[in-house]
């Protein structure tokens, strides 16, 4: 267990290993570790940003949806109003048309009645004259009695 050349040998070995570690082991490992740390930090930052963007987009979409709903409701309202209005108009038109038809029908009926009255009057006058002629057994002067007959006819 005496102290000897081992002391020097081990010192040299020690120095060589430390040098090797300092040159070829420590820097690459520490560099890789630092780089990974930065990469992870950047990744975390990016994911945070993405989260925020996602939240923004979600709230934007919600607002858009709300707006679309309102618009749709407005359109439906408008459509309903328009429909009501059209129904009203149609009803009015129908009523007016109906009244008009009734008016014209009434006028026609009146005309028809008048015409029938005229015809009847004419026929009655002829009938009366024929009847009177037969009653009197004499011819009646058509010229003399025409006025009286026409008066009779008008009274019918």
């Amino acid at each position: 267990m005496n102290i000897g050349l081992t002391l020097l040998g081990q010192s040299l070995t020690f120095i060589v290993f430390v040098w090797f570690c300092m040159k070829f082991i420590w820097p690459p490992i520490v560099t890789a570790m630092r780089e990974r740390q930065e990469a992870i930090a950047a990744g975390l930052r990016a994911s945070e940003e993405a989260d925020k963007k996602l939240a923004d987009a979600a709230s934007g979409a919600e607002a858009e949806l709300e707006r679309a709903k309102e618009e749709a409701a407005a359109i439906i309202d408008q459509a309903r109003n328009r429909a009501n209005q059209m129904i009203e108009e149609a009803k009015n038109d129908a009523r007016v048309e109906g009244e008009r038809l009734i008016e014209s029908a009434k006028a026609e009926i009146e005309q028809e009645v008048n015409r029938a009255k005229e015809t009847l009057r004419g026929q009655v006058a002829t009938l009366v004259i024929n009847g009177a002629e037969q009653v009197l057994e004499s011819s009646v002067d058509a010229g003399k009695h025409n006025d009286m007959l026409n008066r009779l006819a008008a009274e019918l």
């Binding site: 081992t6 040998g9 081990q10 070995t13 290993f17 090797f20 570690c21 070829f24 082991i25 420590w26 820097p27 690459p28 490992i29 560099t31 890789a32 570790m33 780089e35 990974r36 930065e38 990469a39």
Partner: peptide, 24 residues
């Protein structure tokens, strides 16, 4: 000396191997 150098080489070999393939 032999064992100490051998073990030192084990250290260098293992850690150098890790250092060479070190990736971020």
């Amino acid at each position: 000396m032999g064992w100490s150098i051998g073990l030192g080489l084990v250290f260098c070999f293992l850690f150098r191997k890790a250092a060479v393939s070190a990736t971020s």
